[in-house]
Design a protein around this nucleic acid. Structure first.
Lengths: 190, 190
DNA sequence: TCAAAAACTTGAACTACTTCAAGAAATTCA
DNA sequence: TGAATTTCTTGAAGTAGTTCAAGTTTTTGA
């Protein structure tokens, strides 16, 4: 079902029924099994993904061979590799399902011509991207100013359900500390 | 002069002469003296700034009273606090001139109505924001996977002129290590 | 339902960085 | 020009985190 996407869009702009039809015909919903990749390092990313259900993450494999989560996307978030998408260069990232998920995929070529046809949709993406960018600016602030323990508590206070929902080692790497250290923070052993 | 902005815009989209006039009438260029603030913590940010000449930075004052640079913007970059701008909440950041600079300021109310009038301009901002977001994703990757020394060399290799141009302690905090440690890296004493 | 896999915990040893304090060098501007 | 300010450097001591290795608990799926 595409409804969650249309609901999300209509929070920011309103679409003509004809535009809704046009957009609808371009969307492809797909189920992604837990741990399945929708993008791998080295591939060119030609798709934007909207999470209808479940949870996706962007991660890399670092020089020690360990996975490092850089970004999560839950229901109603967009996720893609914007650099690869816009510059048509190989991606540095993996995009993977953390849970069994459903995503709406929009192909770049299709989307770009759709955006020219529907200026209001262009507006939607501009606003959503700028808001996400704002959230990213705050994230950098937190990473720069808080200790590991403060970052954990802050995240836990703000997204308690989410912390329950995904493996702790992913949260640890998203907050930029080791899984072992997170375990100690939780046990009050720091 | 507004030319640098129009040149930048026309790299991504093309504007009708009438649109150029319309936009032109909304722009306000202003000189910002080195160290002068164009936004302070606690204020609501209602403006987007385009750097025509010079260099601006976004920084915070951390719990120890030290300045921490989170972002730079040189010629042809936009800078603002997107969270404060979109959610109309007090900013967590300062925006300050690193050098004597010239910026084009566009007021939010003016810009938002302009964007509705000129869909192509909406497109420009969508593309520019997404590209900047892509750069930010890479930045997070570098912060997460490289050591302080690697981050310094990587930055220095990619932006050698820029490293000459701004005080080293600002670069150090932008790369998330202390000015003293940067000094030691440069001296080969690590 | 139960064996295998994935996720979490613990302590001990280590290290990449920070902090502090003081001096030297470079830049600014009256 | 030269005094004041800003920026950079250096070494010594400290610490917030990592790494490793091994064991325990929880979850998964045939």
């Amino acid at each position: 079902m595409h409804k969650p996407l249309f609901d999300h869009i209509q929070k920011f702009i309103s679409l003509e029924p004809s535009d809704i039809d046009k957009l609808e015909s371009c969307l492809e919903i797909s189920k992604v099994k837990k741990k399945e990749h929708i993008l791998e390092e080295g591939q060119i990313c030609n798709t934007m993904y909207f999470v209808v259900k479940g949870c996706m993450r962007q991660f890399i494999i670092n020089s020690k061979g360990a996975e490092q989560t850089l970004q999560f996307a839950i229901e109603n978030w967009w996720i893609t590799d914007y650099l690869s998408y816009h510059n048509h260069v190989p991606s540095s990232f993996y995009l993977q399902a953390v849970e069994n998920s459903e995503v709406i995929a929009i192909d770049k070529t299709v989307l770009e011509s759709l955006l020219i046809e529907i200026p209001n949709l262009e507006r939607y993406f501009r606003i959503v991207t700028q808001k996400t960018f704002g959230a990213m600016q705050m994230r950098i602030k937190f990473l720069f100013t808080m200790s590991a323990e403060e970052r954990y508590h802050h995240f836990n206070d703000n997204f308690p359900e989410f912390v329950q929902r995904v493996p702790q080692y992913m949260i640890a790497s998203y907050l930029d500390f080791s899984a072992e250290f997170m375990s100690k923070i939780r046990a009050g052993k720091v």
